[in-house]
Nucleic acid binder design. Structure first.
Lengths: 196, 196
DNA sequence: GTCTATACGAAGATAGAC
DNA sequence: GTCTATCTTCGTATAGAC
């Protein structure tokens, strides 16, 4: 089955991206890591590396979006969404011995020299960040926070978790993420109670 | 004067790193950008690219540390330090048309395949993040916040600003950083007033 | 769909002249 | 200190057979 090979390649790309970054991840690496047949890359991904990366970012990003939506929808709890988001990131850090982070950030933090590539990739990363933000914000609004505040609060949540992940990689420790989590939980709780 | 050439090379490295990342920045690029003589790189930097990057991260990182210390020392104001940190980042984003971010994050977000390189670079990035954190935390403690809380609050400040910068690059907009700034200023103000 | 072979450029680094 | 030339490896991508 060919679609199986395709999926494996996209998955491998996401795993390699979060560790070595955009330029640091080569098509060769993806082939080796996925065990995919060498001659099939440009069959499945006519646009080559850019397309592979686009799909990997979308895959990883949409998975997070779904997670947030599930935890915040209906009778959900935004604080649980925060904890889950943090847990996912912490697991990635620990399981890669602090060599891996978030593939979306990895791509967003590098600007390729090639213009077209730059545009295509920032389009995906921007969409993912917007989705995360909307999902988080909706959960907060459902709990009584006003839309404008919910949006900026959601941005703070996402930005700080992502920033903490980078700090954890540098320090080979989950402490930055742990600290950010407790601060965020306290802040979100207070905000939901109308205290702040 | 040779030290002039040296400084230019380190400076150029920092500028290129924040835009293209670790793997995306080549020694050739640094030579071209700095206008330095081609044959002098390995004279000034015997360890080649790693050394160049180490010094660039330290240069950029220490400049921020100094900025924070100046604004928080003595009769200083932690909120002013936040605003200044944000201003610096916003200027980088706008002046590079959202193609450039923070060189420290750029390096910390990529794990080189080479072990020794990985160790050397995470040593610098870790030190810089620790310095930023200590500088911010000290400013908060001086204003009456208890040490443990100051440390985690400082981490939140730094992580969220850095995370927001990455989001801004993706979205070609300063809105994420603007939102984070207002949230942080509010939080810091409340914390200093003993409200939270 | 998948193979092997290969084109072509760019990467980091070094040698040896000046 | 700086030059030019070059070694070697690796990057993306393509060609043409199977």
């Amino acid at each position: 089955m060919s679609s199986d090979t395709r999926e494996k390649m996209v998955m491998s790309t996401a795993l390699l991206l979060r560790e070595h970054g955009l330029t640091g991840t080569s098509v060769r690496d993806v082939i080796d890591h996925s065990g995919a047949p060498r001659g099939s890359i440009y069959h499945h991904f006519p646009d080559g590396k850019v397309q592979l990366v686009e799909e990997a970012v979308a895959l990883a990003g949409d998975a997070i979006t779904s997670g947030i939506r599930q935890l915040t929808s209906e009778d959900g709890d935004p604080v649980a969404a925060i904890r889950t988001f943090v847990s996912v990131m912490r697991h990635v850090l620990v399981s890669t011995d602090f060599r891996g982070g978030c593939p979306v950030v990895a791509v967003a933090a590098e600007s390729p020299a090639d213009r077209e590539e730059q545009v295509r990739l920032s389009n995906v990363t921007a969409r993912v960040f917007t989705d995360w933000n909307a999902a988080m914000a909706e959960g907060l609004v459902a709990k009584g926070i006003e839309p404008a505040r919910a949006k900026s609060l959601a941005t703070l949540l996402i930005a700080s978790i992502e920033g903490a992940v980078v700090m954890c990689r540098a320090q080979h420790s989950t402490v930055p993420l742990d600290d950010v989590e407790s601060e965020l939980v306290a802040l979100a709780t207070n905000s939901l109670d109308g205290l702040v």
